[in-house]
Design a protein around this nucleic acid. Structure first.
Length: 870
RNA sequence: GCCGGAAUGGCGGAACUGGUAGACGCGCCGGACUCAAAAUCCGGUGCUGGCGACAGCGUGAGGGUUCGAGUCCCUCUUCCGGCACCA
């Protein structure tokens, strides 16, 4: 492709980032440098960063995410790949409704304005994005395919209706998101939140549980940590489903429980059921105290984190059931620690070998019967010890005595099966995905409720079910449910009057397949087309670690749903995953005389240091002392956010990008420091000044040998290339600094060594700071040496170290005595072991520590060290 | 509570596969330039002792394996992420 002709850039004396960034961006724009097309002749590289929620302005987390992605995209482009790097908007969601309520602006308008602002910001950062593929999930041309797929899943039974539990605000008469529940109360009303069961649509992700789990093994490009979290989340456990018979109103019934510890069955001394269990409901009808307890359990929010920290409480249900093996009667309790949503909503309690049951039994004086020989003995005296839960041989268990874990489980399961009271079963922690939201700003669920035909999916020809965009929610439920024009419709099957579903989809649905749609965002006739088969899977996905479970698991699930619709072949959407850490900043406050706590922005804080540079005090500009409150995520409430725009305005995009890459490896948290940003700016200025001086006639004296300089530059490059392969970009930025240091020490004019070194430096650095490298490459006319690149450093080949430059005649070896460093020796590269030992022993400082002692052993690590053991 | 991480100078971080701890940068100290300041440039900088060559100590705490541990194993502490309706 021809590069657009522009006047040859001259190198000004001063680094002016705003001017050169404008120029570089104009160059890329007119050359359409980042547009990607399908090209089967080249290896493709689909590089994707998680798309942002258009919250208003870009925040530092976005800048970090997209800078990391951009470095990867540009690097792979220079290595010859056909790179796709798209961008779009996760545009449905709760914040738009909150903003709408606060400002009386429809979410649609607010969202679209935010997209405009953030898109301009992304452009100013110079990311190599193919904007021709931009999409927004609130666009009917996008969400129509959510709806289309949903109707397919509904017909297959993979989408279905059942009741689910939600947070209910009794004052606003509305469903609350978990984040809208603060200390058990509604955020706007302050009313205690209640649990409420409502009908919802679910996606049958459990049908894919086995595959989602097994396929984790085939994801070598994912961090182990994320795979482990997903594995635990899916939570496959093999156990026994078994029944305790009981009689209710002279009717014979079975209380089913699931256990992974069937070997402890003979120690089951009671059973416990969830407050939502039918037995609890029955007991509540007979006994007002139980009714009150069940009510108490139903109060509060639905968050598992909160439930898990509740004090374990229970009440006897006034019922007993029969132990399936021993035939003894055991009591049934209603307990708040049993979850209706997991397993059978009931458990057999073995207090001797389960910590929760142990605590519960001791609290309520229930029998504790040890049945396993554990490392701490045969008895289980209080307090609880973790050993009690370990595997061991059965005791006090009649015919099962002496059997180890697996044999006991097998024998007990066989006996239960013979009685028709149980069998082995696989149990999953993973639950089906409830996607219904009683909210306005989301994708409408394409179902019509007909009094005669039931729930009928909207016909393809009627899709999309358009979301009216003019509404402003008021916090009292979904405005769609108050809009007859929306919900009044006719049945797709019988044409009689019917009511349209007014719930919208979880926004996780939108984000579970957007990555595939980028391949063909303009395709109006299908969800995906053959271009998706070219680009998918994503070769590199980059995003926050906070998405390690839900978003990534749902996306893996959707990829399979699309595969099973015949839309794609591959099962896994993301071949390689990079989880980036959060961006943190210091926070400072002072308490006002009125007793208010004011948070002071870190940029307004002056610190006082001691002679060593350690911070001893901090104050505001006006002298008010402030308290350092530690380091944490950037947030409005602590007034410690750094605005990317201000940073770009002051230093330019390249400094922002360089700092973000340099400050920390991508997977770590990044702790913000304005002073370090200055350092990054300083480096780019130094690079500029070095190049500007090279341009001037009259080379300076060479004061460093060329061979040593080349060795240094090529060694650094070798390490940098290794670091790039490990995605450790902070040391690549360091490498660029080291190369500039070496060139400055060499201090020649334009000659073979500086020319080579600088071309390496500009290419190595260009993915991180593309604007300044683009400009310097053109100004210094490196296109003459790299005709294939011409004026565009991005088209230059990636630099590789020259093996000849890495050769050395001598190497330095460290000499240790008993593992302690005592000196070093220089030896010829090919020196043999006796020669090395001789030189090591001859070192005078080494002699001091070996003198008069016998050397028992000599360890020689080639190229590294000699260790003399005395 | 459960699941998953992290911890190295005054600060961010580096250290290959168990082999010189502190690369690179920030900050700080000293110097050059300047009427002065900013900017820039040069030198120093883990802690303790010593004029010094050097020595002792040192990677959150405690133990272990090894010729040798920031790195491997065990126990613990603190901080961070997720927990299904924030995205």
């Amino acid at each position: 492709m021809p590069t657009p002709s522009q006047p040859q850039a001259r190198l000004a004396d001063q680094y002016d980032p705003q001017a050169i960034e404008r120029e570089a961006q104009a160059f890329w724009e007119s050359a359409r440098s980042f547009r990607s097309t399908e090209d089967p002749s080249r290896p493709k590289f689909y590089c994707l960063s998680m798309f942002p929620y258009p919250s208003g302005k870009l925040h530092m987390g976005h800048v970090r995410n997209y800078t990391i992605g951009d470095v990867l995209a540009r690097y792979h482009r220079m290595r010859g790949a056909n790179v796709l790097q798209p961008m779009g908007w996760d545009a449905f969601g709760l914040p738009a409704e909150n903003a709408a309520m606060a400002n009386n602006v429809p979410p649609a308008k607010w969202t679209r304005e935010n997209i405009g602002t953030m898109k301009a910001q992304l452009r100013s950062l110079g990311f190599a994005l193919d904007w021709e593929r931009e999409l927004a999930t609130c666009d009917p041309r996008y969400y129509v395919w959510n709806q289309w797929l949903f109707t397919r899943l509904f017909r297959k039974g993979l989408a279905y209706k059942k009741t689910g539990v939600v947070n209910w605000d009794p004052v606003d008469q509305t469903v609350l998101a978990n984040e809208q529940v603060i200390d058990g109360r509604g955020w706007r009303t302050g009313a205690p939140v209640e649990k409420r069961e409502i009908p919802m649509y679910f996606l049958r992700i459990t049908a894919y549980a086995e595959e989602l789990l097994a396929a984790l093994e085939e994801l070598p490009g994912w961090p182990e940590q994320v795979k482990l979290m997903q594995k635990n989340w899916i939570g496959k456990s093999e156990g026994v489903r078994l029944a305790f018979p009981y009689e209710l109103d002279s009717e014979k019934k079975l209380l089913w429980v699931f256990t992974t510890r069937a070997d402890t069955l003979m120690g089951a001394t009671f059973c416990a059921v969830a407050a939502e269990h039918p037995i609890a409901a029955w007991a509540a009808r007979r006994d007002p105290r139980i009714a009150a307890f069940v009510e108490e359990c139903k109060r509060g929010a639905v968050m598992e984190a909160d439930l898990a920290q509740l004090e374990k409480k229970g009440m006897p249900a006034g019922l007993s059931c029969t132990h399936p093996i021993s035939g003894k009667q055991v009591a049934v309790w209603v307990a708040n620690y049993v979850l209706m949503g997991y397993g059978e909503g009931a458990v057999m309690a073995v207090p001797a070998h389960d910590e929760r049951d142990f605590a519960f039994a001791r609290e309520y004086g229930l029998p504790i019967q040890p049945v396993i020989r554990h490392p701490a003995g045969d008895k289980v005296p209080a307090p609880w010890k973790p050993e009690y839960a370990e595997y061991g041989a059965c005791i006090n268990s009649g015919k099962y005595d002496g059997l180890p874990y697996q044999d006991a489980v097998d024998a007990i399961a066989a006996d239960l099966k013979a009685k028709g009271l149980g069998e082995k079963q696989v149990q999953w922690r993973l639950r089906d995905w409830g996607i219904s939201r009683q909210r306005y700003w989301g994708c409408p669920i394409p179902i019509v409720h007909c009094p005669a035909c039931g729930d009928v999916p909207v016909r393809d020809g009627e899709l999309p079910v358009r979301l009216p965009e003019h509404l402003v929610p008021d916090g009292t439920g979904n405005p769609l449910a108050k809009l007859p024009e929306f919900y009044e419709t006719s049945c797709p099957a019988c044409s009689k009057p019917a009511r349209r579903e007014t719930d919208t989809m979880d926004t996780f649905v939108d984000s579970s397949w957007y990555f595939a749609r980028y391949a063909c965002p303009d395709q109006a006739g299908a969800m995906l087309d053959e271009r998706a088969r070219y680009w998918m899977p994503v070769d590199q996905y980059i995003g926050g670690i906070e998405h390690a479970i839900l978003h990534l698991l749902y996306s893996r699930f959707f990829q399979r749903l699309m595969r099973d619709e015949g839309l794609l072949e591959v099962s896994e959407p993301f071949t390689n995953l990079l989880t980036q850490g959060m961006v943190l900043a210091d926070s400072y406050y002072f308490d006002t005389p009125e007793g208010r706590r004011d948070w002071v922005h870190p940029s307004e804080v002056e610190v006082e240091r001691d002679a060593k540079g350690k911070i001893v005090a901090a104050k505001k500009g006006d002298g008010t002392p402030v308290v350092f409150d530690g380091i944490g995520t950037m947030s409005k409430s602590k007034n410690n956010g750094v605005d990317p725009q201000a940073l770009i305005d002051k230093y330019g995009a390249d400094t922002a990008r360089f700092y973000i890459i340099f400050a920390s490896p991508p997977t770590n948290t990044l702790e913000w420091s304005d002073e370090s940003v200055e350092g990054s700016y300083r480096f780019l200025k130094r690079l500029w000044t070095y190049c500007a001086r090279l341009e001037k006639p009259g080379a300076q004296m060479v004061d460093h040998p060329a061979k040593a300089t080349r060795f240094e530059i090529h060694s650094v490059l070798k390490q940098a290339n290794y670091d790039l392969s490990k995605h450790q970009f902070n040391t690549v930025a360091s490498a660029a600094m080291k190369i500039l240091n070496a060139l400055e020490r060499f201090a020649g004019g334009r000659n073979k060594v500086t020319e080579e070194g600088l071309s390496i430096l500009l290419r190595l650095l260009s993915p991180i700071t593309p604007h300044v490298c683009h400009h310097l490459w053109r100004a210094l006319e490196f296109g003459k040496q790299f005709p294939e690149a011409g004026e565009d450093v991005m088209r230059a080949p990636w630099p590789e170290p020259d093996p000849a430059a890495l050769e050395q005649d001598e190497v330095e070896l460290v000499v240790q005595v008993n593992g302690k460093l005592r000196g070093s020796i220089r030896v010829p590269r090919a020196a043999d072991r006796p020669a090395i030992e001789g030189l090591a022993l001859a070192n005078p400082n080494v002699q001091k520590f070996v003198a008069g002692q016998k050397v028992k052993k000599v360890v020689v690590v080639p190229g590294r060290l000699v260790n003399l053991v005395v």
